[in-house]
Computed example of a mutant assay.
Amino acid sequence: MAGIEIAEIGSFHVGGGLTKLEGMPPRDRVSTPGGPVYHVDQNGEIVAGQMYVQFHKLASPRARAPLLLWHGGGMTGACWESTPDGRPGWQTFFLRAGFNTYVCDAVERGRASWAPYPQIYPEAPYFRTAKDAWEDTFRFGPRGSWHPDPTQRRTYPGLRFPVDAFEAFLAQGVPRWACNDARTLAAYDALIRRLDPGVIVLAHSQGGAFALAAALNAPERVRAVVVLDPSGAPDPATSDAARLCGVPHLFIWGDNWQDNDFWRRSRPASEHWRDALLAAGCDVTHIDLPQRGITGNSHALMADDNSNDIARIVLDWLTARGLEG
Rank of each mutant, 00 (worst) to 15 (best):
G208M: 05
R265T: 08
W114H: 13
L228C: 09
D189N: 09
T184E: 04
G77N: 12
S239V: 13
G207S: 11
Y52A: 04
L195W: 01
G110Y: 12
N43K: 01
I120W: 12
D41T: 00
W177L: 13
L250W: 08
D149A: 13
H286P: 03
T32D: 01
A59G: 02
K20R: 07
L318A: 13
G35C: 01
T184Y: 05
F262A: 09
D283N: 11
V53S: 01
D261F: 07
Q54R: 15
R183M: 15
T101K: 04
T238Q: 14
T184F: 05
C179Y: 14
D28Q: 12
R243V: 15
P268T: 02
V47G: 03
R62C: 01
S266A: 11
V314F: 07
T137W: 08
Q119N: 05
G73A: 15
Q172L: 14
L212M: 11
R153P: 02
L185M: 07
G325A: 13
Q50M: 11
L244H: 12
V103Q: 01
G232Y: 01
A215S: 02
W70D: 01
V103A: 08
R109Q: 15
A187R: 02
I287W: 11
A171W: 14
D275R: 04
P157Y: 07
P162R: 12
L315A: 10
R109A: 13
P66K: 03
R243H: 14
G77K: 06
T295D: 11
P84H: 10
S270T: 09
V201C: 00
R312K: 11
E123H: 11
Q119I: 02
N306C: 06
K131I: 06
A215P: 01
T238R: 09
D136R: 08
R176P: 03
F251Q: 10
P118R: 03
A112L: 00
A59F: 08
T285C: 10
L202I: 03
A190C: 04
V199P: 00
G293P: 15
T92A: 05
A106T: 01
P290C: 09
L185Q: 11
V227N: 03
E324W: 12
D305Q: 07
N43A: 00
P33N: 00
G16L: 13
G198K: 01
C282K: 04
E271Q: 09
E8H: 04
R221I: 02
R64T: 13
P125W: 08
Q50C: 09
D316A: 14
Q172C: 15
A300C: 10
S82I: 13
A97N: 04
A203M: 04
R243A: 14
A186M: 02
H13A: 02
R87K: 11
N180S: 15
P197M: 14
D28A: 05
W253S: 15
P230H: 07
A171L: 13
F262T: 10
P66M: 01
H56P: 03
